[in-house]
Design a protein around this nucleic acid. Structure first.
Lengths: 152, 152
DNA sequence: CTCGTTGCAAAGGATTTGCACAAGT
DNA sequence: ACTTGTGCAAATCCTTTGCAACGAG
């Protein structure tokens, strides 16, 4: 398991645009799919790990270029959570990101969570919210309790 | 106009921590207050503009350090909207940020908008949402209509 | 065979950090 | 005076770009 690609929307979408299906593109997509929330750097690391000692992993620049391409193809989405760390995730599993400002822990929530707010925004501002890109930040239970315990 | 500081929670909070009130800190805070949504760079620019030709503006590194400090003091908040562009805004005017992925337009919405979602997150995950840090991305009405018009 | 892709290396831009000097209390 | 804050410059980090060789169709 791991090398299976549901169908192959990738090949299809590439063909349509006259682009080419390469091992790198397939691998990057697989990794984004495997790692739920991955930064470009993390993706590169995983790629390197999967390749093994003597193996060969895609160059960082290729990872960036591929991620951008996959996003244009609508196969992955990215969100900016903390400082300078964009996080990519497969477009197949839509979910809202929730990040703890203290520990950086990332949780996922049901998109339905924002349904109400989305509707209101659409009605009030004519603004269509992109659920897959949303990131909510705050404090997780663990950190809140810790803060209370450690005093300050 | 412009040099007025509601009261001076800044001086007070600094004193409490044994820190010092400097012209730079006051100026940075004033600018964040003036510019609704400002990136560190924009803040530096405004500072430079306000200083005038012969004037002297705070160094970029000071702006960064000050912003971080002001945030610790709870006087400003920042959010990550687009690529690598953190945006700061005064903590006095809590609002949810809504950004158009196409044109970059930034709109503000009432924090109440997320009240429901916040409650659910608190109940389900024990996660406290920080409304001032939230950024929703999507497409504004203008861009959506334009997309429909220009065809594709 | 032709044109999109990749890897490598250098370029860039945004932030951070170390330090000696200036400034607030 | 004593200690914190600032400016300057160098160091980092993350990402983007130019180009020649490579590989998919």
């Amino acid at each position: 398991m791991g090398t299976e690609h549901s169908q192959a929307p990738l090949a299809e979408r590439l063909r349509t645009r006259g682009l080419r299906l390469t091992a790198q593109r397939q691998r990057v997509l697989d990794v984004v799919d495997a790692l739920e929330h991955a930064t470009p750097e993390a993706i590169g690391a995983k790629l390197r790990a999967d390749a093994g000692p003597g193996g060969t992993a895609p160059d960082p620049s290729t990872v960036y270029r591929t991620l951008e391409l996959l996003e244009r193809l609508g196969l992955v989405w990215h969100t900016h959570l903390g400082k300078g760390a964009p996080v990519y995730h497969a477009a197949e599993h839509p979910h809202v990101h929730v990040v703890c400002a203290s520990c950086g822990e990332i949780a996922s929530a049901d998109p339905q969570l924002l349904a109400g707010a989305a509707e209101r925004l659409a009605a009030d501002l004519g603004f269509t919210v992109d659920v897959g890109h949303v990131a909510l930040s705050g404090t997780c239970r663990a950190c809140r309790e810790r803060a209370g315990t450690e005093h300050a």
